[in-house]
Design a protein around this nucleic acid. Sequence first.
DNA 1: ATCAAGGTAGACAACTTTGTCTACCTCTGT
DNA 2: ACAGAGGTAGACAAAGTTGTCTACCTTGAT
Lengths: 181, 181
Amino acid sequence: MTDKRALLTDSALQLFYEKGINSVGINEVLKVSGVAKKTLYNHFDSKEALVLATLEARDQIFLGWLAKRLSEASSNAELVEALFASLTDWFNSRVPELPPFRGCFFINSSIECGETSKAVSIYCQTHKAKVRELIENQLAEPNASLLDALCLLKEGAIVSAYVSQDLEAANKAVPLAMAFV
Amino acid sequence: MTDKRALLTDSALQLFYEKGINSVGINEVLKVSGVAKKTLYNHFDSKEALVLATLEARDQIFLGWLAKRLSEASSNAELVEALFASLTDWFNSRVPELPPFRGCFFINSSIECGETSKAVSIYCQTHKAKVRELIENQLAEPNASLLDALCLLKEGAIVSAYVSQDLEAANKAVPLAMAFV
DNA sequence: ATCAAGGTAGACAACTTTGTCTACCTCTGT
DNA sequence: ACAGAGGTAGACAAAGTTGTCTACCTTGAT
């Protein structure tokens, strides 16, 4: 009927992000998506291939959302505000486009699969580079040290929000970054 | 003979940190440590209990190392330098006390086990709080926003070093933090 | 010398995992 | 009408997981 590949990818992304890749078996993905096992292996060579598809899907969703949020900013100061306000919304699960916050899917996946799948860690690394590029392109005027600062603070805020449950971490980053505008 | 519990904890910590908790089975820990399965379950109720023991061991080692490195600093500026120089040494695996860098064991464990073991994520959260407290106590004079900045930048540097393979991430944090000294 | 405590070796149960395969069914285009 | 593409349901193989248990051995205190 409809595109089974997309259905599988969506269900898997949801489950992988919520429970972690290693905690979710193929069978659970099948059950939730209501797709047969043969069909899954028709579209994907292995679980790893499915994981890579979910990374790709999340990459698109996340970058699309962030690009929209950052596009409003018309100065570097506004960009800083927009970035960390967006993160705070994300951490507090106030973003309709994104499921309830459970950390960064790419950090999580890199840690969960880093040792077993080179492809996964490379994809995660690439995603981070893309986000950096997005921020760079949104800078009203180039500022290399501000860019470094934003990326460092962004990762720090994500981890603090998840591991230390500090949902306001991104707000603490604002005055810091402002010193470099 | 010697303390089997410590032997098991040490071997498990080494393996868990290097390969990830979920990628290492009990049997591998037994093989490496040369201890019998019965003995392991004599000392630990479950794999989770063993994991918690490794977290405890790493907590002691890491905090001991960091405390030593930070104790030299006699001003807030020196503390900033000492903190990020220490992190850079860690990232580049130049710390004899610590095995080759593979990210933060507590971030990794929290992500790997967060969904299956509440105790693990709580321990990781507590560890992060202890590190913060250590830094706070080493401040030559109290500075709440500097403390926030250091913790945020530290986490950001660790994640960037691991996921993005940016082993110099900690150095980029120095000028940022200095603005708040 | 003995005896209890704790270690060893490893078989085993019970379960879960990925991936393959068979047999059948249901659409769609010609 | 019918061939073929692709979906379904699920058994099954092969491997791996944690945790239990039996049977034996070693060592140190009395």
